[in-house]
Structure formats: C-alpha cells, structure tokens
Design a protein around this nucleic acid. Structure first.
Lengths: 163, 163
DNA sequence: TTTCCTTGGGAACGCCGATGCGCATGGAAG
DNA sequence: CTTCCATGCGCATCGGCGTTCCCAAGGAAA
C-alpha cells in the first residue's frame, strides 16, 4: 500500500480522531456517517492516521472502582542526585512496580511525579513500604490522594477544541 | 437479554480486559484465542463486563506530539477557601477550559492537581493568563512541565498484576 | 435423582471492513 | 488553453467477523 506520512490534518481527520477517542469500537460506517464520508474513504483515513503516528492505538476504559481499586495516589518524589545514571536506575526500578500507571520527570527541582492505583489504604501502605521506600536515590516522598476526580474535557476535545 | 451484574471476576475476565486494554479494536476471535475461549463465549463475557461497569468503554490513543502538542503541564492550584460552593464554582470553571484533561481534588491542603496539554510554551502561557489566572478563589498556581515520560505498567497490568 | 441454573461450544446469518476500480477535482508543466 | 499527474472520494465486491440462536455439560439445591 503506497502511503505517505503527511502532517496535514484537516477537520475531517480531527473529527475521526474525536469519534474514535469517544468510542473506538464503533463501526467505521458509523464514524463515516458522523464525519460525512463514505465508509471506504473513512477506512483509508484511519489507516493513514495510524501509519502517520497520529493514532497510536486503541484501549479500553476500565472501571477502577468497580474492579476494586478505590485509591488513586499522586506521589511526588525527589531525588538526591541529578546524575543521569541515577535517574536511569530510578526509572528502571519504578517501571517494575505494579500499581504505578504514570511516571514523569518534571521541571522545577529534580523530581518525579507518579500516579499510583491501589485497592485501599492498606494496599497503598504496603506498596509504599515495599516498593516506593526502596527506590534508589530517593530523598523525599510525598503522597496525595485523590478525593474527587473532576470531569474535564476529554483528551480529544482538548487537542481539537472543545466540544 | 437476561444478564446479572456479578462482582465475580475470574482470570479469564481479567485476561479479556487486559487484551482489550492493549488493543480495543482487536477482533473478538483473536481475544477469544488468547484467553482460550470460543468466540461466542468471549462475546458474552465482554457484554457482561460492559453491563456490569467493569468495562466503561473504548478509546483511541492519540499521538500528542505528532498532533502538535509538545507540552504537558502538571499544575497545582491552591484555593483560599474550603467552602463547598466555592469548590463547585472552581470545578465548573475548570471544566470549561480547553487543554485541561485531568483535574482532581487531593488530600493535604485544599488543592487541586491538573494535567494540561498545550502546543508549546507560548500556548501554555496564553492558557495560564487567560484561563488559569481567572479561576475563582485561587491563591497559588504552581506549574511543572513534563520533561520526560517514563514508561510504566499499563493500567490493565497495574490492576491485574504485572505482565 | 431430578431440576434448575450457569456457562461453553457450534453453526447460521447478517453486517462490517478492506480493496480495486473509475471518476472528479485541482495544480503544474508545456 | 490543454494536458498530465497527483490526490482523494464513492461504489461495488467479497472474505471475514460478530451476534445470536440452540444444545450440551457440569454443579448446586431440593
């Protein structure tokens, strides 16, 4: 299949991405209808978006709470070093911990911000003791717990303009 | 369709959710093969998981960078009040801002943590000036920028045990 | 043991998605 | 202006997928 990797993205592509972001398992024909395209044209656009890296894949939205995970923790971790090897060791260790679903090195002091899922406070305490506490090079750990999640724009809406 | 809403979740259900989380558009037949079930049994399980709230929906993973959004900001906002009405006003205002993709009220001081996507620093500066700065009741705003995202366990792996 | 309930497998049918083809549009070259 | 090529759409096709029946097997309760 001959296929370029264009940066060009018109509003139809944006609409397709929005639609897929809202319901990735919707039939292509339904998406095509929404965006005013034929099925085949829509399929080809989706393929192009996948090939060009605008569309990375598809995932399921899981009901954390329903699955027994009631704790979301946002954890700030400060390291005592800025040496790249130490950062790499820390990052490798973090990547092994079950429950850590996000981790980012952020500006403003040499620290990391994690998002952690846990069943309950006991579960989180165990995680903290067995894993977070043993991470290499850590100076401070600061845990906050999500009390309430505020509904916001979806990712797609943020990227392509509000609803 | 007669359908109970069981809390029971065996490892087959977990495997299905993992698989769907990894690739939500995979054919049911492929998932069925992975988890060792026939197509029809797998379809029924998926329907049950959807009906029971374990599976909330399906989404697309978008290439932020490729789409021109190179800034991810993690913003801490402190309010000068703890009155519920003030929190509600703040939350309603936040929900209107394009670019805010997550917002949570967290423990430890009365503050919120947001995740914000922006095209570049100029774009973020505009967002900060035009929107964040005008949020009601705000005392302090503290922005950190993601310098590097560390790959972690996926959500499903965190919930059901590492790979 | 009998009955009921649950859950899996098999088959059929309708629908979905990928692909090839023809055509229209628009810009560049002659 | 005309020609040519590139791009992108719609239509039609066909193989494959998903949904939904029905039946069978296994376990629990009476």
């Amino acid at each position: 299949m001959k296929m370029r990797y264009p940066c060009r993205m018109d509003r139809i592509d944006a609409a397709i991405l929005k639609s897929l972001a809202a319901d990735a398992r919707a039939p292509v024909s339904a998406i095509a209808g929404e965006v005013g395209l034929s099925q085949s044209a829509c399929t080809r656009r989706i393929q192009a978006l996948e090939a060009s890296g605008h569309l990375l894949g598809y995932g399921a939205r899981l009901g954390h709470r329903r699955l027994g995970f009631r704790i979301t923790a946002l954890v700030d971790i400060t390291l005592g070093t800025q040496v790249e090897e130490d950062l790499a060791r820390f990052e490798a260790a973090v990547a092994q911990i079950d429950g850590v679903v996000e981790c980012a090195l952020v500006s403003g002091g040499q620290d990391y911000r994690l998002k952690i899922l846990a069943r309950d406070l006991d579960d989180y305490e165990r995680l903290h003791r067995e894993h977070l506490g043993r991470l290499p090079g850590v100076v401070t750990i600061n845990s906050s717990f999500v009390l309430r999640a505020i509904p916001t724009r979806s990712e797609a809406e943020a990227l392509f303009g509000g609803r």
